[in-house]
């Protein structure tokens, strides 16, 4: 049995925050995850990897909670996190969720819709992260984003 992540690691916090068994949104764990990722040297890099994995979950509630964590962190965690999310290394993982060539045919509709919504919101409120609009334009060109 894989050793469980230590109690207050980013991994254990994201597991709690996105647990499909949660009856409702676990804002405590979301807040703790955001604070922790800011206090660790490699926090933003690890956080985006963990979030990408959860967002790609076939379980709708787990993926939707992960998107809520992502949105909360984008509002509260500042520049270091913004620049990690603004890299193709992370954006490509979101693109896979909506692209029929990758996970798009299996991903829940609600999750795909939410991914496109948050990406669009970032093109508006984070214009300096130019790769985000590059990725969004490409999705529009491929007809994945309806005009």
């Amino acid at each position: 049995m894989a050793t469980p992540p230590e109690e207050d690691s980013l991994e254990s916090r994201i597991n709690k925050a996105t647990n499909p068994l949660n009856k409702e949104t676990d804002w405590e764990s979301i807040k703790a995850f955001c604070e922790q990722l800011n206090n660790e040297l490699e926090g933003p890099q690890l956080a985006t990897r963990l979030l990408a994995h959860k967002i790609q979950s076939p379980q709708e509630w787990e993926a939707m909670q992960a998107l809520m964590v992502l949105e909360t962190c984008m509002k509260n965690c500042g520049k270091r996190f913004h620049s990690e999310v603004g890299k193709f290394r992370f954006l490509n993982e979101l693109i896979k969720v909506v692209s029929p060539k990758y996970l798009g045919t299996r991903a829940p509709e609600l999750v795909k819709k939410k991914v496109l919504e948050v990406m669009y919101s970032w093109t508006v409120c984070l214009p300096e992260e130019t790769k985000i609009s590059d990725a969004y334009q490409m999705l529009k060109k491929q007809g994945i984003v309806k005009q």
């Binding site: 193709f88 290394r89 490509n92 590059d134």
Partner: peptide, 15 residues
């Protein structure tokens, strides 16, 4: 903590 600024990245996925 100021992390060293790592700008490494991948190319945009083409779909």
């Amino acid at each position: 903590p100021t992390s060293f600024h790592d700008d490494s990245d991948e190319d945009l996925l083409n779909v």
